[in-house]
Design a protein around this nucleic acid. Structure first.
Length: 269
DNA sequence: AGCTCATGGCGAG
DNA sequence: TCGCCCTGAGCTG
């Protein structure tokens, strides 16, 4: 289950494992059979990520556009591939490896123009080397929407999901209900820079770790702990537990159909 | 076996 | 704001 770091990692893995060589493409489940047939046997020329969107490039034949949604999952493995189960939407195979995709929101063959339209509607991505937080700031600084909602809006900033949202706001002591227009430029610059760093680390480690060294359980003299989503965090899914820093109770609330987590003690309005 | 929930996003009203 | 789509894990019974 993905935020932007997962998708950038997947793009790199595709390049490494399948890039520059022909590969077999199929859709055991059948829902992508037509698209798969059109690129089967072609060379994978490039793999790109923008926010939570993944693009597999097959030259003039176009791009396989993948969005994992909430449930989508990739499984990579060494050849030979096991028999595909009925939920495998997309299977890639070469002599050494296979990759299975299950449960994506999107898996479709698109043109260069359609791909460009997706880039155009996405905000800057902290994991794209040429992107900066400037365009995001232009929208945030004029917006009467809460910063918590803005961080989840992929048109404002691409790649941030529910975990990074909660964690980066905590790390900067920003109350999630503050309005975009009430953030200072310095606050936004610090948040953007932090996302760049945190998400790069997320790509490297393959999980979301946001707890600073001085706040780890060891440093704080507490028993070791890994949160049930695989990384170490301050507030995400820690409702009603004590804050690692102030000891106050972590709070949760629904916001735009998602669960928001924050520490009222550390994140003042 | 059936329910709930999950790191997303879309379109209808 | 709500319902809906995609899948699987972790409960409950």
């Amino acid at each position: 289950m993905p935020e932007g770091h997962t998708i950038h990692r997947l793009a790199a893995d595709h390049d490494l494992v399948f890039g520059g060589r022909p590969l077999r493409v199929s859709s055991p489940q059948g829902k992508f059979s037509d698209g798969a047939a059109l690129v089967d046997g072609l060379v994978l020329e490039s793999a790109e990520a923008h926010g939570k969107h993944l693009f597999l490039g097959f030259g003039p034949s176009g791009w396989v556009h993948i969005h994992l949604g909430l449930f989508g999952k990739y499984g990579f493995g060494d050849a030979p591939a096991p028999p595909a189960t009925e939920t495998v939407r997309l299977r890639l195979i070469n002599d050494e490896a296979y990759a299975d995709l299950r449960g994506p929101t999107t898996c479709a063959l698109i043109t260069d123009g359609e791909k460009q339209a997706i880039h155009d509607r996405l905000g800057p991505d902290p994991l794209r080397a040429r992107d900066t937080g400037e365009k995001a700031w232009q929208r945030i600084s004029k917006s009467r929407t809460t910063i918590a909602a803005l961080l989840m809006d992929q048109k404002v900033i691409a790649g941030v999901g529910n975990v990074y949202r909660a964690e980066v706001l905590f790390r900067h002591g920003i109350d999630p209900y503050r309005l975009g227009k009430d953030l200072t430029r310095a606050e936004w610059d610090a948040v953007w820079a932090d996302l760049v760093e945190l998400m790069r680390e997320g790509v490297r480690l393959g999980r979301i770790d946001t707890v600073r060294p001085e706040h780890t359980p060891e440093a704080m003299g507490r028993p070791p702990r890994v949160d049930d989503h695989g990384g170490e965090v301050y507030v995400y899914r820690r409702a009603h537990q004590p804050c690692h820093i102030c000891g106050g109770e972590i709070r949760t609330a629904g916001l735009a159909a998602r669960n928001l987590f924050w520490c009222p003690g550390c994140q003042k309005p």
